Simulated scan of single mutants.
Amino acid sequence: MKPTITQILFATDLSRNSTYALMHAASLAASTGAKLHVLHVSEPLSDDALITMRIFMQDKGSRAETLKARHDHVKEVLTERQKAFWAALPEADRGIQDQIETIEIIDGHPAEVILRRAHELQCNLIVLGAHDHGFSHTFLGTVAKRVLRRADIPTLVVPYRDEA
């Protein structure tokens, strides 16, 4: 029996390579008819950053506003990148956008959130991009390595390309 792909989770770090990875996720969604879920995970602030914020922002309301502004900024960037991606595609391919089921921004540790959402959404495939090549030319990125180690569904890591 041939495995069926019906739900694809595309995890983006909003890097330049993530657009190239989205092309692969969208292409797979188009060829399989699968629903596409777009996810960006905002890493929590470090303890040092939180302490610094408390020192310089005594008011809890100001701290809450700052954290909300940080989340809103990520949402704006994700929205802009999505619009630019779909606008750059040929008109005939833009219909794939209708297969997007969800676009989410979740705070947390990326690998854990990616794996949890893939399970909750009953995804059959995870797609994410590798980072820029390091000195060894084998650099995947900590998140990709953690997802690959722990995933119980097929995971496609799209390599970085300079011309992407």
Score class of each variant (00 low, 15 high):
residue 18 S to Y: 03
residue 19 T to F: 02
residue 21 A to G: 03
residue 23 M to L: 08
residue 23 M to H: 14
residue 23 M to R: 07
residue 23 M to N: 07
residue 23 M to S: 11
residue 25 A to V: 02
residue 25 A to G: 04
residue 26 A to D: 00
residue 26 A to L: 01
residue 26 A to M: 05
residue 27 S to I: 03
residue 28 L to C: 11
residue 28 L to H: 04
residue 28 L to T: 09
residue 29 A to S: 04
residue 32 T to R: 04
residue 33 G to A: 03
residue 33 G to V: 03
residue 37 H to E: 02
residue 38 V to F: 01
residue 38 V to L: 12
residue 39 L to Q: 00
residue 39 L to I: 04
residue 39 L to R: 00
residue 39 L to W: 01
residue 41 V to H: 06
residue 42 S to M: 15
residue 43 E to D: 13
residue 44 P to R: 15
residue 45 L to V: 05
residue 46 S to F: 13
residue 46 S to D: 10
residue 46 S to M: 05
residue 46 S to Y: 12
residue 47 D to A: 06
residue 48 D to Q: 13
residue 49 A to I: 09
residue 50 L to G: 12
residue 51 I to K: 13
residue 51 I to D: 11
residue 53 M to D: 01
residue 53 M to I: 04
residue 53 M to L: 13
residue 53 M to E: 11
residue 54 R to Q: 11
residue 54 R to L: 10
residue 55 I to G: 03
residue 57 M to P: 02
residue 57 M to A: 10
residue 60 K to F: 05
residue 61 G to M: 13
residue 62 S to Q: 15
residue 65 E to D: 15
residue 65 E to I: 11
residue 65 E to M: 14
residue 65 E to L: 13
residue 67 L to W: 05
residue 67 L to M: 14
residue 68 K to G: 01
residue 68 K to L: 10
residue 69 A to S: 08
residue 70 R to H: 12
residue 70 R to W: 06
residue 70 R to F: 04
residue 70 R to Y: 10
residue 72 D to G: 07
residue 73 H to N: 08
residue 73 H to Y: 10
residue 74 V to M: 12
residue 74 V to S: 03
residue 74 V to K: 09
residue 75 K to W: 11
residue 75 K to G: 12
residue 76 E to R: 13
residue 76 E to Q: 12
residue 77 V to G: 02
residue 77 V to Y: 05
residue 80 E to R: 04
residue 80 E to Y: 08
residue 80 E to F: 09
residue 81 R to M: 11
residue 81 R to A: 07
residue 81 R to S: 13
residue 81 R to E: 14
residue 82 Q to N: 05
residue 84 A to D: 15
residue 86 W to L: 06
residue 86 W to D: 10
residue 90 P to F: 06
residue 93 D to V: 06
residue 95 G to M: 09
residue 95 G to V: 10
residue 95 G to H: 08
residue 95 G to A: 09
residue 95 G to Y: 15
residue 96 I to D: 00
residue 96 I to Q: 06
residue 97 Q to G: 01
residue 99 Q to R: 04
residue 101 E to I: 03
residue 102 T to R: 01
residue 103 I to K: 07
residue 103 I to W: 07
residue 106 I to F: 07
residue 107 D to S: 13
residue 108 G to F: 03
residue 108 G to S: 07
residue 109 H to P: 10
residue 109 H to E: 14
residue 109 H to W: 14
residue 110 P to Y: 02
residue 111 A to I: 12
residue 111 A to M: 06
residue 111 A to D: 11
residue 111 A to Q: 10
residue 112 E to C: 09
residue 112 E to L: 07
residue 115 L to M: 08
